[in-house]
């Protein structure tokens, strides 16, 4: 229907904003690279041309660019999942981790780190694989429990089981940590989230997940609008409530599972970014979902930039930045909007 989608102008603006942020993030770091050099390097590589000597091709293409792409994709995935869950469960406090899948993924990764599960030839392969497997197993377990409790997949039972499962997974993680000995440092660092050292292999997986699951979620915009207004109302206007719920939950879980397996658990993005976006774009998911993706990517890019520059050469865990900045920004915006409205 008319004027439900984002206007072309807004879309272009968001794309430009995202590109600008990505460029900034590639240029700024321990070594500053002039934006023009970055553009030249990217342009020439894209068309298979020789990159002029004097431009740090290695830093741009092999270190910063993959990381920036991964950060943007993870930010978009977390934020999109959060927006979808807040609509589906009709609860502004929900996010991608409400279902418990991110805790499951964390558990898998922590177990991999603690017990030294590795895949030969890839430093993070074992962690990632275990995180994905555990994310998937958690999803199966949570859905099985929710079904066993209540065949109609009632929202309240999903939230309850998700929260309880998260607590369970957290306590198992704590248990593993208390026996982990000298590995505690790497585990703790991972649970706070970091995208340092991620490469193009991660980008490919994230991109594929984003196209598939993100596409599925975006296609459910109308259904999510109906859910956000009320589940009974959704059923009454002809939405296949159970099927849509299952589809969205699985899509969100896959996105979250893969994101967590790449970046560790990064809090707050999925909760706060959709909130802020809703204040700007309104609650209609046809605008909210795509806008959340852009803002999620931009937010996490800036957080990652801060994480690696503020106390350089020490790199902070990105999850610390998102929660610090996110909480402060959220409180400020929330109070401001309450006063204004």
């Amino acid at each position: 229907m008319k004027n439900e989608r984002l206007s072309v102008r807004t879309c272009l603006l968001l794309i430009l904003l995202l590109m600008g942020t990505m460029l900034l993030c590639v240029c700024v770091g321990s070594v500053f690279i002039p934006p023009l050099d970055t553009c030249t390097a990217l342009w020439n590589t894209l068309w298979g041309l020789e990159v002029p000597a004097g431009i740090s091709r290695n830093i741009i293409l092999n270190i910063r660019l993959p990381r920036v792409l991964n950060v943007a994709l993870v930010g978009a995935a977390l934020s999109l999942s959060g927006a979808a869950m807040q609509g589906l469960l009709r609860n502004p406090l929900a996010d991608g981790s409400t279902l418990g899948v991110s805790s499951g993924a964390s558990l898998g990764a922590v177990a991999a780190l603690a017990f030294g599960v590795t895949i030969p030839g890839s430093a993070y392969g074992g962690t990632m694989l275990m995180a994905m497997v555990c994310a998937f197993l958690s999803l199966l377990l949570i859905l099985f429990l929710a079904y066993a409790l209540d065949k109609s997949l009632a929202t309240n039972s999903i939230i309850l089981i998700g929260v309880i499962f998260s607590m369970f997974a957290s306590s198992v993680i704590s248990l593993i940590i208390s026996f982990a000995g000298e590995k505690v440092r790497s585990i703790t660092f991972w649970t706070m989230g970091s995208l340092s050292g991620t490469g193009y292999a991660h980008t490919r997986i994230l991109f594929m997940a984003m196209v598939l699951c993100g596409g599925v979620i975006l296609r459910c915009s109308r259904e999510l609008n109906a859910f956000a207004i009320g589940e009974d109302n959704a059923r009454h206007i002809g939405v296949n409530v159970r099927r849509v719920k299952l589809i969205v939950l699985v899509a969100v879980s896959v996105l979250i599972g893969i994101s967590v397996s790449v970046s560790g658990s990064i809090g707050f993005v999925g909760l706060v970014v959709p909130h802020m976006t809703r204040m700007l774009a309104g609650p209609n998911h046809r605008r909210l979902l795509p806008a959340s993706m852009f803002f999620g990517a931009i937010f996490l890019l800036l957080a990652d930039l801060a994480a690696r520059t503020v106390l350089s050469p020490i790199e902070l865990p990105i999850g610390v930045i998102t929660s610090l900045v996110g909480a402060a920004a959220f409180v400020a915006i929330f109070y401001h909007s309450r006063k204004a409205g």
């Binding site: 229907m1 439900e4 009709r90 609860n91 502004p92 109308r222 609008n225 109906a226 956000a228 207004i229 009320g230 009974d232 109302n233 009454h236 206007i237 002809g238 939405v239 809703r278 309104g282 609650p283 209609n284």
Partner: peptide, 25 residues
């Protein structure tokens, strides 16, 4: 079509958006 007794709304949808959803089916 069903009209329930009460409706609690959580998000700031416009009147038009809610009515348009009636066309879903």
């Amino acid at each position: 079509g069903v009209l329930s007794q009460r409706h609690s709304v959580n998000y700031a949808y416009t009147v038009e958006e809610v009515v348009q959803l009636g066309r879903y089916a």
